[in-house]
Design a binder for these strands. Structure first.
Length: 595
DNA sequence: TAAGTCACG
DNA sequence: ACGTACGTGACTTAT
């Protein structure tokens, strides 16, 4: 058990150390709510300490005074010149922020090192320790248990917590010494890590901390409205089915549709059950009334349960705003992921869905600004393939789908029909996903041969694209990975090891990953450039959301003209491709109107 | 905890 | 004969 004098000696060593690993133990996994139970520090492999502060169980020993410890730590925590290391330090940064303690100088994060080296493998401490150091660590679950018998960390005995937590800090420091040299050995990976992921980590912290404002009253009204519509649809469905049943149960629904009512079942799911998904119901809706009703019910109950009911519950009591968590090491392509709540899948495709975006608002005197990259992945395909005709189409065409349709059908842009445009748009998207003729035929509802003809025609007109696809497959097979323009590596273990279907899947992922991954690199660079600009000019504009090709800001009305004029160039200036990068900016009182 | 479904880019 | 367009997260049902 650490005493005041020992703590002081540790702090002196900490202040002298070149890099210190920092780890907090807390009462909650929710970063905005977590309270500190103890802090561990490691200054070199084998030298770590645990500072217990708030273990609360019968017979728990007296611990150091929290205020005194925080007071001694604060200047060091806040000093950007004192370099810190963590494993997912964004979480610990929130925890300290919950006490008003700024944390600066996070120079390294083993989570991000592992992500840059091996995005496709697990990045939790226990996995990393075993894989890279051959060490079996005590897991968090072993400390606190799981399920109903789980306890909060402040109930863990001081002895156990000390062993566990000091080990975590120690192992993290060892991992850093093992992983960072491997990152640094590849200049492009070092650049991804040092110039992209580490700065983005800080920006994500600020975005999460800021949160986003939502109109809970509006969502509440929408919930009531949706609830009434959903109930009415249920009654109508019962009448058509001749009995009540649970519309949300695919199994019960399958029994009603395909056994009782004897509708033809077009497809089965992976487990052999007849599928009742949207495609199936849409097909059946052409001939029967019930499937149409079910589609409407599905759409509305999804909006209600996932969005209008849930989002108001996610409003933080202290801040009055919604704070998502952005995962920086989840998506294998380099994209971010958003959770609890996911603010990257707020509805936009239907009119009813878009109403939910009306509830994403700005505080008084502010507006919502949305800036998105136009056709970013297709532009990256043009750049990567270097296909002269596709590159030219981007230099000329305001509407790329129309421009490519004109190219492929050999007609002037003004003569492209809406069907021609729709078909080529599907091909353009499909190519990014590595689709085949079957997929395209399904998507367009046409014969497989006709779909194949579209693809053939496309590759004839844009042979560079066909070549690029082939080259990418070969590169993936040779190296076991593909890479983005910036050299982010995307590993594909199944590209050689897998059997038929797995390997085919890996080939499609290989086609998609450089485009999706480069887009992710570009928008991360944009976040850094934009945040640097906002900080330098001391603007009050806040970046609040990132949705893969879009950045959403809360902008003081007085800054609107300036932001609108300057923002696009900071986003388009992050790279010089063979095609122009284009950013569209929208402004409104809410996210819907800013689109 | 798995399966099915569906929201987004 | 088989599966078939990439990458995510969350909700509901059912075991």
């Amino acid at each position: 058990m650490i005493d005041v004098a020992t703590f002081e000696r540790w702090m002196e060593a900490v202040e002298r150390a070149e890099l210190v690993c920092l780890d907090t133990e807390t009462t909650s996994l929710d970063p905005m709510e977590a309270r500190i139970v103890g802090i561990s520090l490691a200054i070199e492999p084998g030298r770590a300490c645990y500072i217990p502060l708030a273990h609360r169980y019968p017979g728990a020993p007296d611990q150091l005074a929290q205020d005194a410890v925080f007071g001694r730590l604060a200047p060091w925590l806040a000093d950007p010149a004192k370099k810190k290391l963590g494993q997912n330090a964004k979480y610990d940064q929130h925890v300290f922020a919950n006490y008003g303690l700024p944390l600066a100088g996070v120079a390294h994060d083993t989570l991000l090192q592992s992500y840059v080296l091996e995005a496709h493998r697990p990045h939790d401490m226990d996995n990393l320790a075993w894989r890279h150091l051959g060490v079996k660590t005590v897991t968090y679950a072993e400390m606190v248990g799981k399920g109903a018998r789980q306890i909060a960390f402040d109930q863990v005995s001081l002895e156990d917590a000390t062993t566990y937590s000091a080990e975590d800090a120690d192992v993290t420091l060892q991992l850093h010494r093992h992983l960072y040299p491997r990152v640094a050995a590849v200049p492009k990976l070092d650049h991804i890590y040092t110039a992209i992921e580490i700065p983005v980590r800080e920006i994500l912290f600020r975005m999460e901390r800021e949160g986003v404002m939502i109109d809970t009253a509006l969502l509440g009204a929408q919930s009531r409205e949706l609830g009434e519509k959903v109930m009415a649809l249920e009654q109508q469905a019962y009448a058509l089915a001749g009995q009540p049943f649970n519309l949300s149960s695919p199994r019960q629904l399958g029994e009603i549709l395909f056994q009782k009512m004897k509708l033809p079942a077009p497809r089965k799911t992976a487990t052999g059950q007849p599928s009742t998904d949207e495609d199936v119901l849409t097909e059946l809706a052409a001939d029967y009334p019930l499937p149409k009703l079910l589609l409407e019910h599905r759409a509305l109950s999804k909006l209600k349960s996932t969005y209008t009911d849930k989002l108001p519950q996610m409003v933080n009591k202290r801040t009055g705003r919604v704070h998502t968590t952005f995962s920086q090491a989840t998506a294998v392509t380099g994209r971010l992921a958003s959770s609890e709540p996911n603010l990257q899948n707020i509805p936009v495709r239907t009119a009813e869905g878009r109403r939910i975006r009306e509830a994403f608002i700005a505080p008084p005197g502010h507006v919502v600004v949305s800036a998105d990259y136009s056709q970013i992945e297709l532009r990256i395909m043009a750049h990567l393939s270097g296909d002269p005709a596709l590159v030219a189409a981007f230099h000329e065409g305001a509407d790329i789908h129309k421009a490519t349709a004109a190219d492929i059908f050999g007609v002037p842009v003004s003569a492209v029909t809406s069907d021609q445009r729709r078909y080529i748009k599907a091909v353009n998207f499909g190519l990014i996903y590595g689709m085949g003729a079957f997929g395209l035929s399904q998507q367009l509802g046409i014969e497989r041969n006709a779909a194949q003809q579209f693809i053939d025609k496309y590759f004839q007109r844009y042979p560079g694209v066909a070549q690029y696809m082939q080259h990418t497959r070969e590169f993936a097979r040779t190296h076991g990975y593909v890479e983005t323009i910036f050299g982010r590596r995307l590993w594909l273990p199944d590209i050689n090891a897998g059997g038929g279907p797995r390997r085919a899947g890996a080939e499609r992922a290989a086609i998609n990953a450089p485009m999706q991954g480069t887009a992710a690199d570009l928008i991360k660079l944009a976040m850094i450039a934009v945040q640097d600009w906002l900080d330098c000019e001391k603007l009050g504009t806040k970046l609040v959301l990132q949705v893969h090709d879009e950045l959403v800001f809360e902008v003081p009305a007085v800054e609107l003209d300036h932001v609108r004029a300057e923002l696009p160039k900071h986003m388009t200036g992050v790279a010089e491709l063979t095609v122009p990068l284009v950013v569209d900016v929208g402004v409104g009182p809410n996210w819907e109107r800013a689109h």
